[in-house]
Design a protein around this nucleic acid. Structure first.
Lengths: 233, 233
DNA sequence: CTTCATTGTATACAATCGTATACCTTAAGA
DNA sequence: TCTTAAGGTATACGATTGTATACAATGAAG
């Protein structure tokens, strides 16, 4: 919930908290005024300048703090999903040896991850709203920072997929590319998930389907058709 | 280029044009003031109220006009790509009869479409910037409108895929779901395409890969593995 | 104990904001 | 021909904005 424990100076923290809250409600980091922000933080307008040069600097600070709190949990969640689905000792069995087992396991991990991911989104909406919003928002500085961040997420994911053996062998470029596509899809869908509560099941399914499609498609293109054919036989 | 030919009243058109331009530069539809808008349109501030109740109404008007000008061209472009890739008379040959031919053709159409799409984006950046921006922007009204619009695009795409025989038989739910995912990916990547000119080739490839992955993955999941295996043999 | 940087406040000001009221012009309908 | 609605302007108002300048409290370093 509170992403800003690291921020020691109280005024700074109050401002960042207020900004995050305002961003979630008005839903843009620069849609509110400096004075409005100060008012919400219970501080004098000028205090802002003690900590930030401008709104970009505030935005970067928030993003950086939030991501510190989110990145690792997301990885943990993926591993958690993986472990919950692995029949004991089967980790070592390669796709070549037992396509079917690995395929089924991959689907399980996939579904579990998606479910956990959206639960996580649900309990941390502010972080996702601000992130996705500003990814295409009005500040070039924030856009750039968030694009870099998406890269990091994708990189984490690629690494995990490899370590957890969730896909047949893929060259690392393709793997990263697929991971990036999955990241984009998941973050995008997280907005729908937040905003359309009545469609949450559907969105969950949609996300799962996209991931399966992307991963299986990439497996096919990497020359693993026969492998998949075996898995599905 | 000019999306607003339909708007007859001059003041209204001037306001919409100014808003579109401002949105592209400041990159948010409500990041500027009513007076700033009027100034850019060369009109009295009050003229705004003659045509719009508030900024949402302006936004909706712009979106609606822009999309009228964009939706059909996008479809044409897809058909154009399809026709350019079809060996004469081969349209009638089903995936079952000749998997390989259809697979190759599908890839060709795919690549051509992606290329044409990004060319289109390049020559209509305003439309895409505003669209993607406001899809996750600060106005719930615009968000909702743009989500509906994305649905329409996806629906068009699904219809075209079916008519043009770009995929092996798929139940219509899956087809729509895949089309939606493709739409999201394409619109998302269109932003990167605009903002990172030095990576355009890479982005183009990325888009192509995602589409192939999504479509082929869905084919696999729909039980067409053997078909694809044949195509790739 | 003094110094001084840090964090926050108080006051002030010109600029800009949204909008209310009133008025002008034009073209269409009665 | 007279009326009336629509599109556009002029002026004016109080509210809010970003920020400059000056000042107060605190705590660490010397």
């Amino acid at each position: 919930m509170s992403y800003l424990k690291n921020v020691k100076v109280e005024g700074k923290r109050l401002l960042m908290e207020a900004a995050l809250k305002l961003a979630v409600n008005t839903r843009s980091l620069d849609a509110f005024s400096l004075r409005e922000l100060a008012r919400n933080a219970g501080l004098n307008p000028n205090t802002f300048y003690r900590h930030f040069k401008d709104f970009d600097e505030l935005g970067l600070a928030i993003i950086s703090e939030v991501m510190d709190q989110i990145r690792q949990p997301l990885r943990d969640l993926r591993r958690e999903a993986a472990e919950s689905a692995v029949p004991e000792g089967s980790l070592s069995i390669s796709w070549q040896e037992n396509p079917r087992l690995n395929f089924v396991r991959s689907l399980q991990v996939n579904n579990a991850t998606v479910e956990l991911f959206f639960k996580f989104v649900e309990s941390n909406p502010e972080a996702f709203i601000v992130g996705v919003r500003e990814l295409h928002g009005s500040s070039p500085v924030l856009r750039k920072a968030l694009r870099a961040l998406m890269k990091d997420f994708a990189h984490d994911m690629a690494e995990d997929i490899e370590v957890l053996g969730l896909l047949p062998k893929l060259d690392s470029a393709s793997l990263l590319s697929v991971s990036e596509a999955i990241s984009r899809e998941m973050f995008q869908l997280s907005m729908n998930y937040i905003e359309e509560p009545e469609r949450r099941d559907e969105i969950c399914q949609q996300a799962g389907a996209s991931i399966v499609n992307l991963t299986m498609g990439s497996a096919v293109l990497a020359g693993h058709v026969e492998l998949l054919a075996d898995a599905l036989r």
